[in-house]
Design a protein around this nucleic acid. Structure first.
Lengths: 185, 185
DNA sequence: GTCTATAAGTCGATAGAC
DNA sequence: GTCTATCGACTTATAGAC
């Protein structure tokens, strides 16, 4: 609030995220983002140094949220309850305010690679896998643990919804994820 | 074999598929594809009318394979054994010769939408979901059925592999998919 | 079938006025 | 903070020689 003369910067972020996810990063031009906001390209360049900079701005927010999550997970290792809580918190991240960012990523993997943000994100997801599978080395158990995480991420992807128009409720995805990560009997 | 003067057309398809999956459809120029094959752009235009045409050429091959699969599934409805066989055949498709096409799709969803091939593919996946979940309407059961399909599709996506460099063996993915689609006890 | 050359357009980014 | 105007570097696609 303090010192904020206008919200143009955040409006650019929101519109860019939406268009990048819908049409793809490369296919979305700065001209199109500017037109949507009744601005010119030059105005965009006042708020962001480059087109890539817009992506970095919201990717670093997500990275911080994931780092907090992983830090909590690391400090509560080797507890079944903690593994469940990690899934719960991850579900809250991907279904909450960061859902548009998750959607952008799933729709723009090649762009993420070129912008140099894919590797860092992949590393965080890999650590999440390790926290959830908790040292189990049976390949099937590991795959189920990864699917638990995927079940939550897929909430941001309309393609895999039951009804293509309506994403499944977050609590269903969380319940299925928890049972996938639970030890077999 | 008969009538094939050269294999240039297939070499273009293979290289384009690889580059599209790696760098993205928009980011890959016809110049780059031509250079990789020691050809010129103009030579590409002899074999394909447009850049979009290259994509359509391998997407229609995959569509035929999926249509065969769905046709078989429709004619063997309401049998648990048939539902398992559908998953087995789908696994063979996505882990076999069509794996590069699946990988292209997962990396280029926005491009697929714009090329007008996304909707047809999404419809086939939705029908596959319906065949696998076999009329169950419990949301959790439906989500598990979708995850069975996703477990198989993810074989084409290195991001979700246990070891980022090595995709999990197809038989593990199939086994987990089968148990996800099986009725609960 | 493959080439050279070029048309026609879009893009990201910058300079400088206000 | 936002504008107009522009630059240079691409891109897809075509024409026509060989």
């Amino acid at each position: 609030m303090v010192g904020r003369r206008s919200d143009t910067r955040e409006r650019i972020q929101r519109v860019a995220l939406e268009l990048f996810a819908e049409q793809g990063y490369e296919k979305t031009s700065l001209r199109e983002i500017a037109e949507r906001l009744d601005l010119t390209k030059a105005a965009l360049y006042y708020h962001f140094k480059t087109k890539e900079d817009i992506v970095h701005s919201f990717m670093s927010d997500l990275a911080s949220a994931l780092d907090d999550l992983l830090e909590w997970g690391r400090s509560h290792r080797d507890s079944a309850h903690a593994r469940e809580e990690v899934l719960r918190r991850f579900s809250a991240v991907v279904a909450g305010e960061y859902a548009p960012v998750l959607r952008f990523m799933q729709q723009n993997m090649p762009a993420m690679r070129e912008l140099g943000v894919k590797h860092a994100f992949a590393a965080k997801i890999q650590e999440l896998f390790r926290l959830v599978c908790a040292g189990e080395d049976d390949p099937a158990t590991q795959l189920r643990s990864r699917l638990a995480v995927v079940a939550l991420m897929l909430q941001a992807n309309p393609m895999f919804a039951a009804d293509p128009e309506t994403l499944p409720p977050a609590d269903v995805a969380l319940r299925v994820a928890l049972e996938l990560a639970a030890p077999r009997d």
